[in-house]
Design a protein around this nucleic acid. Structure first.
Lengths: 210, 210
DNA sequence: CGGGCAACTGACTTCCGTTCAATAGCCCAT
DNA sequence: ATGGGCTATTGAACGGAAGTCAGTTGCCCG
């Protein structure tokens, strides 16, 4: 109601399309949540940085947690998109290409990626689900190239472990001083590990049968 | 001030030693943070469950985050203690024993362990540091048994990855329907992976020399 | 037994997530 | 072009939770 000293930037109210605004807010969220822990980022911070009122954020996301989940989901989609490789390539070449794309992605996004993918809010089922699906996606990519397996579920557990191996080495690589280990070495080792892991599984060597 | 209707349970105030109370609060925190996400647990909840006033909790921990960190640290110490193995055993036997102890621990603690170790508050350096140190501890255990390596830092990055492999497979195992994969199979595979990983490193095979 | 140290309390402040009635930019029918 | 309506947008208000502090009381030690 204080209409007195208007005329300065009262009419700055710019109406945006739903998708545009949503995209802006998600980008804003990536910047914040990639830098600071969830509970230290306030809705006011985000609203101010985005140049909108706090209320508007709730027009797009029902809750702070939902907002965070949306941001994380976007980051996950980004990762998936960035690690797509030409499906016509031979499986082993494709795997190395995917691995390289993954490492490039991690390096390019740096700490923000680390922060987001480390999980944000532990033990929230929705959040954990998003991260699980990212790992599941990579497992799918690998399984797609494999001949049918006698124990698909066991296979998936172990492949998920391999994805964990890649994740953790990536983070360690990112945080290690330069010269500690090369990207090529990482790709070589991860590839070998996958080959060896699959080799462990296909023969009758797997002891735990029945 | 309002001393009027006293006499009921006003004198319930029991004075505890610092260590006792602290231990109680940490146990209480494990129960809460193992079940619910960080930001849905209020100090009031914990205080009420512990039968103390909110103010007292701040007498022991300067901040909710510090409290959380202390709880996580305790959980980590617990894990370390539970996975100690007889150092006189042969290295390979010791490794399998450690692996088994780890899996037993995960199984026994179940979801609470998962929730805590998944990180609670993403991107908080203190929290991340605690989890990093747990992984580092396991890497230390492995490295201790190894002959000196030409590239110790690269070795540690990859061993850290192996620990990640074990972590992720453990969680996948825990959450998978029974019969998916046996503990013995997991131990076999993880052991093989470690042997193979070390085999990849020792020979001149590592392409990326420097 | 009484004095004092430290555990303990509870009320208070501040800040943050969430709600909602009111407002105003933009598109469309006329 | 214009005015009406749909909805993006606002800002103020509410409840609740983190953190503070001056005061209180259990307990040990002389």
């Amino acid at each position: 109601m204080a209409r007195a000293a208007a005329g300065e930037k009262k009419t700055t109210r710019t109406r945006q399309s739903l998708d545009t605004r949503r995209a802006q807010l998600i980008a804003q969220g990536m910047a914040f949540f990639g830098t600071r822990p969830y509970d230290t980022v306030s809705i006011d911070d985000i609203a101010e940085a985005a140049g909108i009122s706090k209320g508007l954020l709730y027009h797009y996301f029902p809750t702070k947690r939902d907002y965070y989940a949306a941001v994380l989901e976007a980051a996950a989609a980004d990762l998936r998109a960035q690690t797509l490789v030409d499906p016509t390539l031979a499986p082993d070449v494709r795997m190395r290409a995917g691995l390289e794309a993954y490492l490039d992605f991690v390096k390019a996004r740096g700490p923000a990626y680390v922060a987001l993918m480390r999980g944000g809010i532990g033990s929230d089922p929705v959040i954990a689900g998003i991260l699980d699906r990212v790992r599941g996606h990579f497992v799918d990519m690998i399984v797609k190239d494999l001949p049918p397996h006698a124990r698909p579920r066991a296979l998936r557990v172990l492949l998920r472990g391999w994805v964990g191996f890649v994740e953790v080495t990536s983070l360690a690589w990112l945080e290690s001083p330069p010269g500690t280990i090369t990207k090529a070495h990482l790709i070589d080792t991860a590839s070998s590990m996958l080959v060896l892991l699959l080799g462990e599984l296909t023969p009758a060597g797997a002891s735990a049968a029945g």
